[in-house]
Simulated scan of single mutants.
Amino acid sequence: MERTPDGFVVRGDLTDEHVFRPRRDRAVRTTVQHRVELDERLRVMQITDDQVDVVGRAGAVPGTEMPVLGAAVRAERRTGRVREVSFRRTWDPSKPKGERVVEEARFDSHEVVRQIRDVAVALGWDERDGAAQRSGRIFGLAGGAIALLTLVVLGVALLVR
């Protein structure tokens, strides 16, 4: 956790091999952070999720006729309400049937948000949606209204015909 001037940030680095299995041909780095902005006067908080995936690849380019040595980096960022779920299990086939799972790791970014909310509610704080969530809801409702209006117009056009 890191304090900021208007609240705090909770970061989770999912690069750990217990969460994502490493691949030989590419390097993956995923970071999920939850930015919490606090308005102490109104006792209102706003949680915005931020996920950054950076994928690096080096070596021969697959699917080409002639091998070409190259490297590439791709970065992707998602903001708003992001949920990242991953899990890993390790089995030992030499153990008895009910005891074969040796190690189990699970990550769910929603659990972090739930813990932040639970503590905030216990302290008497309310939650307000962030700008990304509000704009997404507005665009979703506008798209639904346009689709409904289109269906009504098409239905009227077919009945008038």
Results as ranks from 00 to 15, higher is better:
residue 2 E to D: 10
residue 3 R to F: 06
residue 4 T to P: 01
residue 4 T to L: 06
residue 5 P to H: 00
residue 7 G to R: 04
residue 7 G to L: 02
residue 7 G to M: 03
residue 9 V to D: 03
residue 9 V to P: 05
residue 19 V to H: 11
residue 21 R to Q: 06
residue 25 D to V: 03
residue 25 D to A: 05
residue 25 D to N: 03
residue 27 A to W: 10
residue 30 T to S: 07
residue 30 T to Y: 02
residue 31 T to N: 07
residue 31 T to C: 08
residue 33 Q to L: 14
residue 36 V to L: 12
residue 37 E to I: 10
residue 39 D to N: 12
residue 40 E to L: 02
residue 41 R to L: 07
residue 43 R to H: 07
residue 44 V to M: 10
residue 44 V to S: 03
residue 44 V to Y: 09
residue 45 M to K: 07
residue 45 M to S: 08
residue 46 Q to D: 05
residue 47 I to G: 02
residue 47 I to E: 05
residue 47 I to S: 01
residue 47 I to A: 05
residue 48 T to A: 04
residue 48 T to R: 10
residue 49 D to V: 02
residue 50 D to A: 11
residue 51 Q to G: 15
residue 51 Q to R: 15
residue 53 D to Q: 01
residue 54 V to F: 03
residue 54 V to Q: 12
residue 55 V to Y: 04
residue 56 G to F: 10
residue 59 G to T: 11
residue 59 G to R: 06
residue 59 G to S: 11
residue 60 A to Q: 02
residue 62 P to S: 14
residue 62 P to Q: 13
residue 64 T to N: 01
residue 64 T to M: 12
residue 64 T to P: 00
residue 65 E to R: 14
residue 66 M to P: 03
residue 66 M to S: 15
residue 66 M to W: 11
residue 67 P to W: 01
residue 67 P to Q: 04
residue 68 V to G: 08
residue 69 L to M: 15
residue 69 L to V: 10
residue 70 G to A: 12
residue 72 A to S: 06
residue 73 V to F: 01
residue 74 R to N: 07
residue 77 R to E: 03
residue 80 G to C: 02
residue 84 E to K: 15
residue 85 V to W: 05
residue 87 F to G: 15
residue 88 R to Y: 03
residue 88 R to W: 03
residue 88 R to I: 04
residue 92 D to E: 08
residue 92 D to H: 02
residue 93 P to T: 12
residue 94 S to Y: 04
residue 95 K to D: 04
residue 95 K to C: 02
residue 97 K to Y: 13
residue 97 K to G: 06
residue 101 V to Q: 11
residue 102 V to H: 11
residue 102 V to N: 11
residue 104 E to D: 00
residue 105 A to P: 00
residue 105 A to E: 11
residue 108 D to S: 03
residue 108 D to R: 10
residue 108 D to Q: 04
residue 109 S to V: 08
residue 110 H to L: 00
residue 110 H to K: 00
residue 110 H to S: 06
residue 111 E to R: 08
residue 111 E to Y: 05
residue 112 V to R: 00
residue 113 V to I: 02
residue 113 V to Y: 03
residue 115 Q to H: 10
residue 115 Q to K: 08
residue 115 Q to P: 00
residue 116 I to N: 05
residue 118 D to Q: 15
residue 120 A to G: 09
residue 122 A to F: 02
residue 125 W to Q: 02
residue 126 D to S: 13
residue 127 E to S: 07
residue 129 D to V: 05
residue 130 G to F: 09
residue 131 A to T: 11
residue 131 A to S: 14
residue 131 A to M: 11
residue 133 Q to G: 10
residue 133 Q to A: 15
residue 133 Q to S: 13
residue 134 R to A: 08
residue 135 S to F: 10
residue 136 G to E: 12
residue 136 G to D: 14
residue 136 G to W: 07
residue 136 G to S: 13
residue 136 G to R: 13
residue 137 R to G: 03
residue 139 F to R: 15
residue 140 G to Q: 05
residue 141 L to N: 01
residue 141 L to E: 05
residue 141 L to W: 12
residue 142 A to Y: 05
residue 142 A to F: 12
residue 143 G to S: 10
residue 144 G to R: 09
residue 146 I to W: 09
residue 148 L to H: 00
residue 148 L to Q: 00
residue 149 L to M: 02
residue 149 L to E: 00
residue 150 T to M: 12
residue 154 L to D: 11
residue 154 L to S: 12
residue 157 A to T: 13
residue 158 L to T: 04
residue 158 L to H: 00
residue 158 L to N: 04
residue 159 L to I: 12
